[in-house]
Amino acid sequence: MKLTKDQLMAALFLAPSLLLIAIFVYGFIGWTGWVSVSNWNSLMPDMSFAGLKNYLYLFGDYRFQAGIRNTIFFTVLFILSVIVLGLSLAILLDQTKKGNAVFRNIFLFPMALSFVVTGVVWQWLLHPSTGFNRFLQVFGIQPKWYTDTNILAGFQWGSIEFGLPVAIIAVVIAAVWQMTGFSLAMYVAGLTGIDEELREAARIDGATEFQIYRKVILPMLTPITMSVIIIMAHISLKIFDLIYAMTGSGANFVTDVPGVYMFETTFRGNYYANGAAIAMIMLILVAVFIVPYLIHSRRGTS
């Protein structure tokens, strides 16, 4: 096979970035994987092979189990809220053409902040003895927000109580506040992409406004919903900055997540191998979502 000049040039130009990605992304994933099966659990590297010892330790560990539980509930609540709120707001905006742009921008603004800023602000807003509770005092309710240590519908599972940690709801509120604008923008784009003629056709066929949305528009928005789910899932499975700035790992680890645990055990406790094992588990969790999506979208394009 003979390469044309164009192909040769293309390969040359791609080479540096391929090489960099190979080293700094995949190379280091490999390195992390190697560390995670080593005995490097003190300041000085010890790369002797430990098998799955670090993984087994984690699966029996109270804090790690709590972190996984919190991640599951955080992810589910976060994605559901972002989709429902984003879609509702997008439909409302779609209904009224007036002031559309203004509101779209207002809802998008929180996206411009970093999670750290959001975390600090919501930490004070939902502080049990200052923030929002001063207002709720009028009604005689004083939620404990992120300091609540209750687990709803909890049952013993492993060494932890499995159920919905009430404290995580406070974190979900902050995350939803920030990310709803994103799903809103996605849905607005999706809605504008739907041809007005389709709606007209449905109307002529005698469909009500509600039926039009249920039978025509929502099905057409499915690809957008898929994208939102994937993007939000990889944000929430890897979440670190929001939790770290807002609540820390929380009393009894009710707001702990694997990212925070990884950081603390690696850089405070010097358990490098344990930290690497947590990182690998997080990678697998994210891959469970991303890989099928990538395969699916590749099939779609080719």
Binding site: N41, S42, Y62, R63, T149, S249, A251, N252, F253, E264, T265, R268, G269, N270, Y271
Partner: peptide, 19 residues
């Protein structure tokens, strides 16, 4: 004691404060 031990004690103390 070492930072490793301290990290574990901090975790157990965090659990104890609630439980």
């Amino acid at each position: 004691a070492s930072e490793g031990f301290l990290t574990k004690v901090n975790q157990e103390v965090n659990i104890f404060v609630t439980q």
